[in-house]
Computed example of a mutant assay.
Amino acid sequence: MPIRLVVAHHMPIVRHGLQLLLESRGTVSVVGEASDGIQTVDLARQVQPDILLIDLAMPAGGIDLLRLLATAARSVRPILLAESGDSTLGVALRAGARGIVLKQSTVAALFNSLDTVMQGEYWLIDDRAADEPEALRRMSVERRGANGNNRFRLTRREMQIVAAVADGDSNKAIGERLSVTEDTVKHHLSNIFDKVGVFSRLELAMFAIHHGLLPEGEPATGQ
């Protein structure tokens, strides 16, 4: 049975694009659309979707919307589309969000978030978390990185790969340590190179050391 999903975004063209994308895999059925928080709550009550995909910046949305949903449609699992560095993400998790997907994430990350949340776990930016306490702990780590050494908008997964490259790991070894494919590692490395402005693994390792992106005691695997 496909995942029943409602898309909540204030821009019609984005809602339409998300519907086409989500239904292209054949495992998701978009059962409704909403353009603001009030419509979202009403629609959630009426159709009781499995997942609500919500733009955190939507009018009448945000934390108050999540709190309303927690009482009006308790069985619905909200996943937020958010901007990197948004200071309200930790509060959003406490208010009932089951997943957070950055707007610059890959399509694969979006689909992974749906599957993970449907399995009863949480999705935090680029990886799963078993429960709310783990998600909140990792969000705290993300925020410390964003406000401290990580000034280059690197995600948690990208920071793990930077650390692994600095350790001298090959793409294959990184993939094995992080349980992802070599192609996924290559994709992350391409994004990292673009963000920090380097052109080789050696330059990346030197850049990470120079800019303090390898804090002592931070394992490359994130375990």
Rank of each mutant, 00 (worst) to 15 (best):
V7K: 00
A8V: 07
H10R: 14
H10Y: 14
M11N: 13
P12T: 04
P12D: 04
P12W: 06
I13W: 11
Q19M: 14
L20Y: 09
L21M: 13
R25E: 14
G26K: 12
T27K: 12
S29M: 09
V30W: 05
T40K: 00
D42E: 10
L43Q: 01
A44G: 15
A44F: 01
R45S: 07
L52C: 01
I54R: 06
L56G: 01
A57E: 11
P59E: 07
A60Y: 05
G61T: 07
D64L: 11
L65K: 05
L65G: 07
L66A: 03
L69V: 02
A72M: 06
A72F: 02
S75M: 03
R77T: 02
P78N: 03
I79F: 02
A82D: 05
G85C: 08
T88L: 12
L89G: 08
G90P: 04
G90T: 07
A95K: 04
R98H: 10
R98C: 04
V101G: 07
L102K: 08
Q104F: 14
V107H: 11
L110R: 04
D115N: 15
T116N: 04
V117Y: 00
Y122S: 02
W123T: 03
D126G: 08
D126A: 04
D127W: 08
R128F: 05
A130T: 13
E132Q: 14
A135L: 03
M139P: 09
M139E: 14
S140Y: 07
V141L: 11
E142Y: 12
E142N: 13
R144V: 09
G145C: 10
G148Y: 02
N150C: 03
R153W: 15
L154G: 00
T155V: 12
E158C: 01
E158G: 01
E158T: 02
V162M: 00
G168A: 03
D169Q: 14
S170G: 10
N171Q: 13
N171M: 09
E176S: 12
V180K: 02
V185P: 00
V185E: 03
H188R: 13
S190C: 07
N191M: 14
D194T: 12
V196A: 03
F199S: 14
S200F: 11
E203Y: 04
E203G: 09
L204H: 07
M206I: 15
F207Q: 05
F207T: 06
I209K: 15
G212L: 07
G217L: 09
A220K: 10
